[in-house]
């Protein structure tokens, strides 16, 4: 029995609700992408602007990292569709990302390095 026949027999949906292809209508429009691109450009300009502002270094680091996290998330959520796509992809990707951040933070700290 193929998976499709099995699902038909049990009355299960053939395509998962959150799987790609089940929601073509949910794809953002081209206009939306351009708007996001614009926001990304503005944030980048703000980052470069901040670089030239004379301010407390720790505050600068916090601000710059916050802005890059926003940019990063926007690209991942919209351009890479994680906001609309199956949750498994988000789990896998955030898993890899979180693991990276945690183990290398510990390793750098153990070796006496720091971000500031």
């Amino acid at each position: 029995m193929t998976l499709a026949e099995y699902r038909k027999k049990r009355g299960e949906p053939l395509i998962r609700e959150d799987a790609d292809g089940a929601h073509d209508d949910k794809h953002p429009s081209a206009l939306k992408y351009v708007q996001i691109g614009l926001i990304l450009a503005i944030i980048t300009a703000a980052e470069v602007g901040l670089y030239y502002v004379d301010m407390n270094f720790t505050l600068l680091v916090v601000l710059l990292i916050a802005l890059s996290v926003v940019k990063f998330s926007m690209v991942v959520l919209w351009f890479m569709h994680l906001k609309f796509d199956a949750s498994l992809f988000s789990v896998l990707f955030t898993g890899g990302l979180a693991l990276t951040v945690v183990v290398f933070t510990v390793a750098i700290a153990a070796l006496g390095g720091s971000l500031t």
């Binding site: 029995m1 193929t2 998976l3 026949e5 099995y6 699902r7 498994l88």
Partner: peptide, 8 residues
């Protein structure tokens, strides 16, 4: 393993 399992 995630995608090729037999029905059930």
């Amino acid at each position: 393993i995630l995608n090729m399992r037999a029905p059930g």
